[in-house]
Design a binder for these strands. Structure first.
Lengths: 156, 156
DNA sequence: CGAAAACCTCAAGTAATCTTGAAATCAACC
DNA sequence: GGTTGATTTCAAGATTACTTGAGGTTTTCG
C-alpha cells in the first residue's frame, strides 16, 4: 500500500491517473508515452510518467486532439529535461485556447439569448449555426421575426 | 433565383442551411427531420425546415449530441405547432448548459494558471484531470512542487 | 427530345479515441 | 510449486457524425 516503488505497473498507473489500462496502452501505441519492460515483458512506468499522463489528460480537457498533444510534446526539448520555462511555454498556449473558448461560448450565449428574446430561430438572424453571415434571398425584413406565425414550426 | 418556392430541394436546403445534403439525409435517417417526396421520390422540404435545421445545428454548437437533440425535440408537442414558450423552454436549457460550460472552463483555467505558477503538473495538486480529489500515497508535501528537480520530466 | 445536372438508395468507409475479447504468459502470495 | 489475479498481444468492435461511391432515376433546360 505505502510502498512507493519508483516503478508502477500499468494497473497502478491506471489507478493513480484515473486512465484505463487500455487507454494507456493506446497512448503508447500512438507514441504519446513509453514504458520500460520487465524480463517478462510487462510494462513498468517510472514515477514521472504520472506527470506525462496528467499532461495528456489536461491537454485533452483544453480541447487538444492526441495528435496535437503529440506535436506539443515534440516542441519540448528531447535532449534535456524540460525546464519550468519549457513547460510554461507549452501550457501558455492552453490558457490562450481556454480564453478563446470562453469568448466563443460568451458569444454563443449572447446570440442565443437574443434568439430566445425573439423566439424565431431564423437562420439569417440567429447566427448560431453560421458564424459568418451568408446569403439567403428571402425578402422579408426583421419584422417577421416577432410574428407568431413564424414561430416554432419546428415540429411540423 | 428569387422565386422563393415554398418547397426546397435538398440542394437548396443544403445551400441555405450550410449543411451538406448527405448530412441532411443522415438527419432524416436518425429521425431528426422528415421530408415530403415528389412523384419521382425526390425530397422536397417545406420552408420551415430551415428552422429545424437551424435548431439542430444550434443545439450541436451548444454541445448536444444528435441523440440529445432528438430527445429535446421530443419534448416539443407533437400535436400542435410549438409556441414561443415551448421553444423558449427548450432553449433555456441550452443557456444553462452554456453557463455550466463557462464555469467549467473558468475552473480549468484557474487550475491551469496555478499549475503554471508552480510548474509542476502534479496529478495531486493540479486537478486538471481529476475533478474530484483522489488518493495518492506519496508522503511529500507541497514544498516539492517548486523544486527544480521535480519539473518537466515530461519528456523522459 | 435529349443531354446534363441533381437526386435516389444502400453499403461501405472515415476519423478519433478508445474498449473488448481471446488465448497465452507473468508475478505474487501461501 | 501451484493457484490466482494481473498483464501481454493482436484483432475486432463501439461510438458519433457523417462522407463517399456505385449504379440507377428524375428534373430541368435548351
Amino acid at each position: 500500500m505505502s510502498r512507493l516503488p519508483d516503478h508502477l505497473t500499468i494497473g497502478e498507473l491506471s489507478q493513480r491517473s484515473g486512465v484505463a489500462p487500455s487507454a494507456l496502452r493506446f497512448y503508447e501505441d500512438v507514441g504519446l508515452m513509453s514504458a520500460e519492460r520487465t524480463g517478462g515483458n510487462q510494462r513498468r512506468y517510472p514515477r514521472h510518467t504520472l506527470r506525462r499522463v496528467a499532461f495528456i489528460r489536461a491537454a485533452q480537457r483544453v480541447g487538444l486532439s492526441l495528435d496535437e498533444i503529440n506535436t506539443a510534446l515534440a516542441t519540448l526539448p528531447s535532449g534535456r529535461t524540460p525546464t519550468k520555462a519549457d513547460w510554461q511555454r507549452v501550457s501558455r498556449g492552453w490558457t490562450d485556447r481556454i480564453d478563446q473558448q470562453l469568448r466563443d461560448l460568451e458569444l454563443l450565449k449572447s446570440k442565443l439569448t437574443s434568439c430566445i428574446g425573439c423566439g424565431c430561430l431564423s437562420l439569417r438572424t440567429c447566427l448560431l449555426t453560421n458564424p459568418d453571415d451568408y446569403e439567403g434571398d428571402r425578402g422579408v425584413g426583421p419584422a417577421w421575426l416577432a410574428t407568431d406565425e413564424n414561430l416554432g414550426n419546428i415540429r411540423e
